[in-house]
């Protein structure tokens, strides 16, 4: 149990996906201008990451390894993620229309989000977690992603009103803010 908690904290804070591992930067700089849409995006990504980790773990350990097809992992993982995103989209559309509209365009975009492929690669090939550890790691990573996305969007809402130098406006100042957030998160380094 303590091991699962350690994995969760490590994935969410110490090795935060955006600020430390540099995964999922496109939504970080692209959509994080409104708190609401940032949180929707974060929840959608967390959801897909957890299911994708579960699915790829099963496929990797019960199909790819027994049949000696490990080298196919890149093609298989991306296809699994693309298929999952399609299925989840259809499922949500049929069962919960309000949620479907809340996710909006973010759901299809998740296929090419490197955080999702990133977590499947990390749990299967880098850390080689067990099934439960993989799901917990994906949940932690997703929540850490959501947290930083929400923080960044809150800051950027204020930043629109700030009097930044002309050359710094927009993307450059967002990078500087990310630096400061990154420094703050490096403080979590000694936690475990």
């Amino acid at each position: 149990m303590t091991e699962l908690i350690a994995i969760f904290i490590s994935m969410a804070l110490i090795n935060n996906f955006i600020l430390v591992r540099f995964l999922g930067l496109c939504p970080f700089f692209g959509v994080s201008k409104q708190l609401g849409s940032a949180v929707s995006m974060g929840v959608a990504v967390t959801f897909v990451m957890s299911i994708a980790s579960l699915a790829t773990w099963l496929i990797y350990n019960y199909i790819l390894i027994p049949f000696d097809l490990k080298y196919m992992y890149i093609v298989i993982f991306i296809l699994v993620i693309a298929t999952l995103v399609q299925i989840i989209e259809l499922f949500i559309k049929k069962t919960n229309a309000a949620l479907y509209f809340a996710f909006g365009i973010y759901l299809p975009l998740i296929t090419t989000n490197c955080a999702v492929l990133g977590i499947t690669l990390i749990v299967n090939t880098v850390e080689v977690y067990s099934l439960w550890q993989s799901v917990v790691a994906a949940l932690g990573a997703g929540l850490g992603f959501t947290l930083v996305l929400a923080m960044m969007s809150g800051i950027r809402e204020k930043l629109e009103l700030a009097n930044a130098p002309k050359a710094m406006k927009g993307l450059p100042i967002a990078f500087i803010i990310a630096t400061l957030l990154g420094l703050a998160f490096s403080g979590f380094g000694g936690m475990i």
């Binding site: 600020l19 430390v20 591992r21 540099f22 130098p165 002309k166 050359a167 710094m168 993307l171 450059p172 100042i173 967002a174 990078f175 500087i176 990310a178 630096t179 400061l180 990154g182 420094l183 490096s186």
Partner: peptide, 22 residues
């Protein structure tokens, strides 16, 4: 040393982008 840490990557790109615009 901060420049080889993750935070330094954001800093260098942010400053370069600002420099190109300036």
């Amino acid at each position: 040393a901060i420049l080889v840490l993750p935070a330094g990557a954001f800093l260098v790109i942010g400053l370069l982008l600002a420099l190109f615009r300036r």
